[in-house]
């Protein structure tokens, strides 16, 4: 059986990759993919913990998270389309009307 730590290390690495992606990516779609990566890192950790402890809560939570992430993505794509119609760009650097 693969020990718990390995799963957690993978989850942590995925989470950090997602975080870095959100920070350095300039395309809105890439940022979105990175956010999904972060959510899935949490999913992986949940499932690993769940298997380790032999309870089902983590598995249930993963399904819930996936559903919510789908809802979030739907709203996100709609907002990106609205923005694209106004600004003709998906580059986050050019979205700079509001600033101090």
């Amino acid at each position: 059986m693969i020990p718990l730590e390995w799963f957690l290390i993978v989850a942590g690495v995925i989470f950090v990759i997602g975080m870095i992606g959100v920070i350095i990516a300039r395309n809105v779609m890439i940022i979105f993919m990175s956010i999904e990566l972060m959510l899935n890192a949490a999913n992986l950790a949940m499932v690993a913990f769940s298997r380790e402890m032999g309870t089902l809560d983590g598995h249930v939570m993963v399904f819930v998270i996936m559903t919510v992430a789908a809802a979030e993505a739907a709203v996100g794509l709609a907002i990106i389309i609205a923005l694209f119609r106004n600004r003709d760009t998906a580059n986050i650097d050019e979205v700079n009307v509001l600033k101090w």
Binding site: V28, I35, E72, V75, I79, V97, L98
Partner: peptide, 13 residues
């Protein structure tokens, strides 16, 4: 409104 969509996008991310 560009401002509103931009606000939405920033809030969303």
């Amino acid at each position: 409104s560009l401002q509103s969509s931009e606000a939405g996008l920033k809030y969303l991310i």
